[in-house]
Design a protein around this nucleic acid. Sequence first.
DNA 1: CTGAAAGCGCTTACAG
DNA 2: CTGAAAGCGCTTACAG
Lengths: 333, 333
Amino acid sequence: MEEKETLTIADVAEALGVSKTTVSRAISGKGRIGKETREKVLAFIEEHNFKPNMIAKGLAKSKTYNICVVMPRDYEMVDWNFFQTCLFGIQERAQMAEYDILLTMCRMDDISSLERIIDDHKVDGVILMRTVLKDIQIEFMLQKTIPFVTIGSSNYKGVVQMDHNHRSACRDLTLGILKKGVKRIALIGEDDGYIVTQSRLSGYFDAFVKMDRKVEDKLLFLSPENHLSVDKSVEGALAEGVECILCMDDSVTRRVLKVLRESKVSVPSDVWVASFFDSTILADNVPSITSLSFDSKELGMEACRVLLDMIEGVTVAERTLLPYEVVWKGSTI
Amino acid sequence: MEEKETLTIADVAEALGVSKTTVSRAISGKGRIGKETREKVLAFIEEHNFKPNMIAKGLAKSKTYNICVVMPRDYEMVDWNFFQTCLFGIQERAQMAEYDILLTMCRMDDISSLERIIDDHKVDGVILMRTVLKDIQIEFMLQKTIPFVTIGSSNYKGVVQMDHNHRSACRDLTLGILKKGVKRIALIGEDDGYIVTQSRLSGYFDAFVKMDRKVEDKLLFLSPENHLSVDKSVEGALAEGVECILCMDDSVTRRVLKVLRESKVSVPSDVWVASFFDSTILADNVPSITSLSFDSKELGMEACRVLLDMIEGVTVAERTLLPYEVVWKGSTI
DNA sequence: CTGAAAGCGCTTACAG
DNA sequence: CTGAAAGCGCTTACAG
């Protein structure tokens, strides 16, 4: 049986002796159309495996059925697992609406690829997967009319955000440790300008306030962003004789554990370790590391859902904070 | 100054008192057009920041200016770093041609999202980032007319492939170890049906053939795909008193190192360890692990370049093998 | 060198 | 309930 390479709505209309309008209506399900006619068209479409051209549909409806997902492009991006899982969530939700993901990667100082995608009218909305304090991605999007949502919080006004409640989570974890009778807790992290780092720090402070205790400044190690300084921070913390080291994220934690191992300091007998973020890079450590657990896939799904709502013109909450879990493991016993 | 939300080629034409044809020609640079006219149009476009709608252009030219990148969606995907770096390469190359990446993730038993993207006519070509022996992604693409290339090798006929020369690389690494006088080398891996696993195995055998030595079957641990069996393999290898453990990939290596650490077997004094694949998950190990090093970004760039060529109708080589490096570290001294 | 017109494959008022 | 026609924003033979 001969079949055209790829048939169009006009072919279907001609074959059936109806108008393109009718075929279009049968497919979309919109507009009045006779039951028999619709079924006839649908049957033909099914049989001949006709799929309408989404590009053409998009042009007619001024839609692309694509959302742009902007991923950070850092030199050393250790938490890909987070982005991966987020992407799974986004894709799962997008799929339901027959939307696809246009992926791009931007460095924080060069958003030309994002700009081009927007200017080329290639997407209906965008998800920013990482936010920073001064964020040119957000500043750029803010002056465009196309809807966008950030994964992670932002201080800019009028930005729709989807995040986990990091502050509250860090408070709970720190509180838990304080309540176990630990007196001196070091906090090691990188001074990277991410909002989430701020939130984590706030949570840490919240816990001390709650317990009516004072944070010792010298136990706060917020160093510039590089491995060497984490190493020094660990030394510093050890010199102070802390009982527990709290790490800002999984990347820091991994490095801290490495340093401790090399220094023959054992966890948890010599010092406790806990992390404000969990990931697979910590999974195989002995002992397992006490940490905060967040559902990244859910984060992605929710961000996508909200964006899709915005595209549909539905009003959405400016900021949504998702729940978390504190998981106690062998590193704090 | 008033500006329309988004202006079209017709607006530009009207404002300048020329035809849409002329504007189009000025932008594309194709077709004869007067120098002055062109410059006038270009100046206006520049000043008013007009960007042609790529969707409309695409419809007219039957192009989408998108390529689909299909990423595997496994339960436990540890080598995201590889895909990340590959993606960087793809994006960098795609960018040059003003192409974008439509990302989708497929499990090996469910390619519905790929199918939809193709059937919806949303891309001009596709890059398959992982291949397996029996590959429904490839089988599906083979019966479509749209060009595609695989990252990694494939046994299917007529598939354009971009890969590193894994076989040769594994041969070199194994050979190097044998030449250092090591007699008994265990090979631990997972029996996962990936082509690359086959190639690695072949490389291992090649080295023994080259040295005129026989592979001991009992030192080959190709177990089903789960952590527990890797653990058993390590025990088995140790029981056989091997001098070196070769690991199929970075994921296996990580697990092997964990087991050794727990068993108080030290590297390299008790046993050597080397890996057929390197990644950041191995980066911080003490000691550093001898391994094969591949440039994943280059792999992505080359795959994209070839795909773009195919889209342009240029004939390309069916299979390209990129070079590699053997990196000797402290784990084999 | 320039433009009117048809076309890419859909959708959607507007008529009937 | 159904269709002719205009339109989405471009490109490209075809004329002139």
